[in-house]
Design a protein around this nucleic acid. Structure first.
Lengths: 134, 134
DNA sequence: CCTTGACCTAGAGTTAACTATAGGGCTTAT
DNA sequence: ATAAGCCCTATAGTTAACTCTAGGTCAAGG
């Protein structure tokens, strides 16, 4: 059994346009075609697409992801590159997480700030507050 | 004392182009000018820019951020909107954090996968592994 | 048989967020 | 007093990642 492009799009919350775009960019060289040219996605292709989505969410641009896909096609001689790439991605995600934690702190602060202001009916309630009023 | 645009750019790790672009988009209506038109940034402006950067890091587009800035200029009548906006941003960051945690899991898995493969000299070491080989 | 609704490619268009250029104005050091 | 180095605006160009359109194929249902 195989999946059509629209089935895969639904499964991964992407559009068929996006999937064809990824294919055009060389991200899916593994997807087979039927005799008339229709893409036939296997379960393993969907797993590979999930890895691609994972890499995207680390902030990796499509051209970089393509490099990885090419390395996969090249076989065992590229194991080191692929390992290094994932270590780099791990560091990138750690940095993103750290940034987001700082973001969360400020957002939480602002939530409190506006809750207090809303209860007081005016932002002036924070006027004398040298620390925290930003 | 006030800061020049290039000083602020350095402080916030942005380019002067970006700062001028933000100004053009209406994100910095509060920044004063000298008699000859040069922007004079106060400490408070830098704090406001940090909030803008914070909102950006939650995935908020610049046009949305402008709405918030406009609300700030409108005074106390917009306190509810601003509070609601920060609650939404909080939810957005929580969603991002959750996604990033899933991403981190897959990345960690891949790091182990390639470490093992590298030690074995071949990816075939994972061939029989129905679970986890993706 | 013919229409409907998948699928396909090639290529054009869109959007956001910069990034850069051209042309010009102050201020300061040689 | 003139060149360097900062500032300014307006506007054009770039890039990534889609998003859409035009024009065409093919299989199934009425």
């Amino acid at each position: 059994m195989s999946y059509s492009i629209s089935e895969v799009a639904k499964k991964l919350n992407l559009t068929v346009y996006t999937l064809r775009y990824y294919d055009k960019e060389g991200l899916m060289p593994f997807v087979e075609r039927s005799s008339n040219g229709t893409r036939l996605f296997q379960e393993s292709d969907i797993e590979a697409l999930k890895v691609i989505e994972c890499l995207k969410s680390t902030g990796m641009p499509i051209k970089e992801i393509k490099k990885f896909i090419d390395w996969c096609s090249d076989g065992d001689s590229t194991l080191q590159q692929r390992y290094d790439m994932f270590l780099e991605r791990k560091a990138a995600v750690e940095a993103l997480l750290e940034e987001l934690n700082g973001t969360m702190e400020l957002i939480n602060h602002k939530c409190k700030y506006y809750k207090t202001a809303l209860e007081a009916g005016t932002e002036d309630i924070h006027k004398n507050n040298k620390i925290g009023n930003f």
